[in-house]
């Protein structure tokens, strides 16, 4: 409920701090982006090279998991402060989903 909008004037130090932080973040983004492109290249190359499917499929799934984590942390700001609740619910969901899948492949008899 913001009733009055306060105008905020940045000081010089603050300005430099923000600038440095954005630069850091930008570097993170670019690095992550490069890694993700590289991972995608590995995935495509593996399929193209014609390795056995039993080798290729798990590796691709692993790479996908890594990419999802990078995506969440570097592009969807999970690494920032104030995202603890989101993390809690995300991980809880992952655990529930994992247990469900584990059940389906272990104790459902056919």
């Amino acid at each position: 409920m913001a009733h009055d909008v306060h105008a905020h004037v940045r000081s010089q130090t603050e300005y430099e701090y923000k600038r440095r932080r954005s630069a850091n973040e930008m570097r993170g983004h670019v690095t992550t982006f490069a890694i993700m492109i590289f991972l995608t290249l590995i995935a495509f190359t593996m399929v193209y090279a014609g390795f056995s499917a039993y080798f290729v499929v798990p590796i691709i799934l692993l790479l996908a998991a890594v990419q999802v984590i990078l995506q969440l942390y570097y592009f969807m700001h999970m690494s920032h402060k104030g995202h603890e609740t989101a993390q809690l619910f995300l991980y809880s969901g992952v655990i529930v989903a994992f247990i469900t899948i584990l059940t389906m492949i272990t104790i459902v008899w056919w």
Binding site: T100, T103, V108, W110
Partner: peptide, 12 residues
Amino acid sequence: GNTIIWEHLFWI
């Protein structure tokens, strides 16, 4: 299919 899947889904 498998009828046990329902039981798991229902009780999860």
